[in-house]
Design a protein around this nucleic acid. Sequence first.
DNA 1: CGCATTCTTGACCCAACTCAATATAAGTGG
DNA 2: CCACTTATATTGAGTTGGGTCAAGAATGCG
Lengths: 223, 223
Amino acid sequence: MHTVSTYSPDAAISARSASLGRSDASLRAAPQRAFAKGTEVFGEGEPSTFFYKVVSGTVRTVKLLSDGRRQIDGFYMPGDWFGLENGQSHRVTAEAVDQVLVIPYRRGDLGSLLKADPALIEALVESTLVNLDRAHEHMMLLGRKTALERMASFLMELAARMDVRDRLRLPMQRSDIADHLGLTIETVSRTVMQMVRAGLIKLDDSGRTVILADRKGLELLGA
Amino acid sequence: MHTVSTYSPDAAISARSASLGRSDASLRAAPQRAFAKGTEVFGEGEPSTFFYKVVSGTVRTVKLLSDGRRQIDGFYMPGDWFGLENGQSHRVTAEAVDQVLVIPYRRGDLGSLLKADPALIEALVESTLVNLDRAHEHMMLLGRKTALERMASFLMELAARMDVRDRLRLPMQRSDIADHLGLTIETVSRTVMQMVRAGLIKLDDSGRTVILADRKGLELLGA
DNA sequence: CGCATTCTTGACCCAACTCAATATAAGTGG
DNA sequence: CCACTTATATTGAGTTGGGTCAAGAATGCG
């Protein structure tokens, strides 16, 4: 069970859906669906009948190589959309990182989507462009940053997205962080410990709660 | 000047704009603009007044770190759109890899774009989703593939996008490939030579024309 | 033809990986 | 609530793929 954290999913939702104009009900397939930790929301190759908006919890999108190497393209948190992709089938797998609540939307084809609800579309296009922006930023991280810089960037981005000042509860485990940052769990662990020793962060209980002790230093490392 | 290659920009354009329905003229800012090799189409931080469609040539989008480390997010070729981003300013720099011809489109805000030309929007949304797909695929490459696998993936993707069977003229130099694949020029060079020795590819003239001698082998490496 | 780019090759190095062992936390059933 | 089990995280020792530094070799432009 999670301890109570400073992060409030509900606050994040209302903040993010402000631009939506409350017209999104028309395409909803169901009020919401729950997924237990570790379960699959949809799988790579499955027909992309739905896309989703996160209500609470964290979703990861995963790609696998034939030999098991794994890349986590992104994490999706309350207010984020995921699963809207080009083509008839999903190109990634989406899994619940912890207990997750999502709202499914029926995709149909893009053309009819456009006619059905222009206000929703505007929000969706914006969300897709935000996702693309994050992807570009992440390519810089994966292609050109050191382990320490990757970890700093990751923590700062997470803090910004969760809208927390300095107490950050990580929903995902080290292996997820590793597969997101293009590192191994050992390197993630060593890098986190190195940050603790350098006074950049502090760790709580099981290492899942991070206190950003030196935001300026982290910012400098990440950029 | 380029030698005549098997790649036909015009064929690519007509193939890709089939879904567009020829209604895109309404938002065009100008018939077309030319950019010389190495020049900037737009810079990071500049207001994103326009986005573009490539007519001929190749465009790269670039991100820089303060110390000069460079990441090339993507290459854009005839028929591809680039420069449509979230927010008021460009988050990447776009440069001409060779002699380039583009059509600029006035962005305005997304809402009015939506009303102005639904057919264009549909094509644009699709193009953005394609770009996102490529970004996800590229993250797997950057996060988890070896130098040899990266090079194989890169060549196969380029061949597919240029719609060539096995003679591929690379528009970009080694340093561009390196900064796209998260490697150094030396490693790119060594990897290419290794592929030649292994009989996977053959090199022509200056090393800019690649013959895919063993597509099956390359495919196996890339996937 | 000559100069500047671009590309290749070699020798050496190091950041991150692999393999291996604990250590710590989180369940789970009695 | 506690013993037992399993999952997750940390730490250490040794290795390596790709980086760095430094020459050369092509290529091609003016």
